[in-house]
Structures are given as C-alpha cells and as structure tokens.
Amino acid sequence: MDIIIIVILVVILFSLGSALIGMLRGGAKGSDKMFKSLRTRISLSVFLFVFLMFASFMGWIEPNNVLPTQ
C-alpha cells in the first residue's frame, strides 16, 4: 500500500518538474506544456487524497496517530 502512495507521489513530483521545464522554455509551446503538466499534477494529487481517505475507510492503511503499543 505504501508503495502505491509513494509511486503516485513520485509521479506528482515528476509532473511538477515537467511544468518547470515548460515554464523555462516559454513561448506558446512551453506555456502549453506547463499548463498540461500542472493539470496532471493537481488531478493526481486530488486522486491521491481521495484514495487515502478511501483506503483508510476500508482499513487498508492506518494513520500515524495510533500510539505505539507499550
């Protein structure tokens, strides 16, 4: 489960980086690339958040706020 979350996070970082490259390039093409990458990154982020809630609801994953067993 952790792996899936981390993989999605890495893809998000990747699209953020790709947007940076688009911004660097500038012009109509770069601007297009930037916008599309940013759209990908926000969609994925929202998906990840919803997935996290769902996974927690289904009991696949537990948050850190469970005290360690003494």
């Binding site: 996070l9 998000i12 953020l16 947007a19 940076l20 911004m23 990154r41 982020s45 996290l52 948050p63």
Partner: peptide, 27 residues
C-alpha cells in the same frame, strides 16, 4: 510569466504539503 512563476510556486508549496501530510501523518 509573472503569473506562471507564482502559479508554479503555489503548486510547489502544495506538493510539499502533500508530502508532509503523507509522511508525517500516514506512512
């Protein structure tokens, strides 16, 4: 460009938070 720069910065801050949320509260 000024808008693009600031927008990217905002997305970046957003992703940092997502990383924080996941690593501090979940994983």
């Amino acid at each position: 460009f000024a808008f693009e720069g600031v927008a990217w910065y905002w997305h970046f801050v957003d992703v940092v938070w997502l990383g924080l949320f996941i690593f501090v509260y979940w994983l």
